[in-house]
Design a protein around this nucleic acid. Sequence first.
DNA 1: TTGAAAGCGCTAACAA
DNA 2: TTGTTAGCGCTTTCAA
Lengths: 342, 342
Amino acid sequence: MPNEKITINDIARLSGVSKRTVSRVINQSPKVGEQTKLKVEKIIEQYNYVPDKQARGLASSRSYLLGLVYDNPDALYIDDVQRGVLSFCSKKGYELVVHPCRYKSPDLNDNVLDFIRRSKLDGIILLPPASEVDELADVLDNKQVPYVRLVSGFSEKTDDFVMSNDRHGAADMARFLVSLKHQKIAMITGPLHYRSSKERYEGFIHTMESMDRPLPESYLIEGTNLYESGIEKGKHLLTLEDRPTAIFCNNDEMASGVLKAASDLGIKVPEQLSVCGFDDNLLASRIIPALTTIKRPVRPMAVYAANKLIAKIEGNNPQAVIQNCTVHPELVIRDSTGFNDN
Amino acid sequence: MPNEKITINDIARLSGVSKRTVSRVINQSPKVGEQTKLKVEKIIEQYNYVPDKQARGLASSRSYLLGLVYDNPDALYIDDVQRGVLSFCSKKGYELVVHPCRYKSPDLNDNVLDFIRRSKLDGIILLPPASEVDELADVLDNKQVPYVRLVSGFSEKTDDFVMSNDRHGAADMARFLVSLKHQKIAMITGPLHYRSSKERYEGFIHTMESMDRPLPESYLIEGTNLYESGIEKGKHLLTLEDRPTAIFCNNDEMASGVLKAASDLGIKVPEQLSVCGFDDNLLASRIIPALTTIKRPVRPMAVYAANKLIAKIEGNNPQAVIQNCTVHPELVIRDSTGFNDN
DNA sequence: TTGAAAGCGCTAACAA
DNA sequence: TTGTTAGCGCTTTCAA
């Protein structure tokens, strides 16, 4: 167990230099003699000294606290992000403070700003859909709060974003379903004001079109991303006179709903119907039949986000800020899709 | 948007009293004249003043930060807890810092202590199974760190615990399965060194025994709580010469595994086999057939935990510490269980 | 390259 | 009941 009450003064005394010099060593200031530096570092090591965050914060207006702002019904996603972020930031001496919010709320901005101010956060990570609210980003820019946004899609401002190329993922799925010889393919999209839904939707239909297989209007439905919506829209599609043989859903939740609808209607998956989702959350592998889906690389995104954010906060190593901003979802083939042999 | 740079000095000046008095008002000291108090409060309100946490912390060795320590594969559970805790503690001016750990690790204690020290946490909430490590609790007692443990089962030390009576829940399930006329009932327990597994196991078999329906040894298997274990143990039970007609699993994850095993073996649920779990996590309602299970009231537990912890930290209102420490799981009947008509 | 001293915003003895 | 005066442990001008 590390010692309890060692302060910068002790270290200064013990190593025969001034407080100021110890401070310089702690903060890796270049203006310290090599000898002095080594001497001080040795004492720090020896006494297992860790600078007090609050004191540092009070003196420098920093807190070594990062905020995670989200409004997402998907617990699995949040947990994954948290672990990813923590794996990076705890090495760097930062802690993570979590903050659920209501992204549609009119006082979202104030709420987030207040959160930042109350805890003197050094920076925040925004998860979708809160990350898609440009107005919030503007306010943060305005207040000079460092932030990173996790989003689907593409942006030029690479140092504010970690992006997932959902469009490609959806395109892969389109190709996969066609390779299975499906002729009647439907899609249940997410709410199209979400960036991720839009990307997946466009990736899918454009690819279908490029293969001369445009989706008929009746095979294209907007859902809510919720399980219940999957049931409802699934039921609708499956009771169509000419029902589809494959349904691609914007996420695994809705795909589960479609599975439920199919089950209720006595339609066998994958024999009579192929169903696939997007995300590859826990559900996808547990459900029967296990879902074919597109795996969103959440962990890596979270790690990149933490990396970028800390780089921005510390303002050094600009290289680190630029790279690794786009991540690629990949197709995971399981049991809910099959060859169409009509 | 709240003003930025107001300090206690401004408030003192503005309300014509000393800094110390403002401090007293902020900290709800009783030793302030009613008039003075109102006057100061009005100014505080008017200028939207919020005391600086770091400064307060530095001066009083407090941080207004609570820690959540967990090592649990179940993301859904974590997320639920987080939201429950936050709903209470953010009202009280505390923030939540999350900390995954490896509860089996030999340096668990040091790791947690270090986490507390680094962030100067005011207190922590321990989730199972880390909450079941008495040694860790001892160390915390030793270091005078306030904590609350979420556990299954019962303890006399009510102010350190928020408890879930899993034993009762399991007993309910036993009675339910018997009411369905099942004669051959099996159970896949969790690892019995977990308190929750033990409680559920004992609650179940004791109740069966009390109904003169002791479980034969071959119908009692210890699993790992993981999905894969459910598949494995399920397959085993279902290929027994005299296979059970009902299987109660220690959690929903394993119950999902049993469903998978049954599906692979062509055994219909609930027609030929009833399967039930425990927890009522997201999976339970999504899977087909939807799982009959025991709902663990996670949110309320989390709220109570936050409540207790803050009461302990602030050391006032001892009443609040005593009450509400036990919570009761309840049976949720869905589609995976049915009447046995052999 | 180093050090002395002031101060970040607050709480806490001790007086008054 | 209120105010004065020191700090809490660190960073940061400024000077040496």
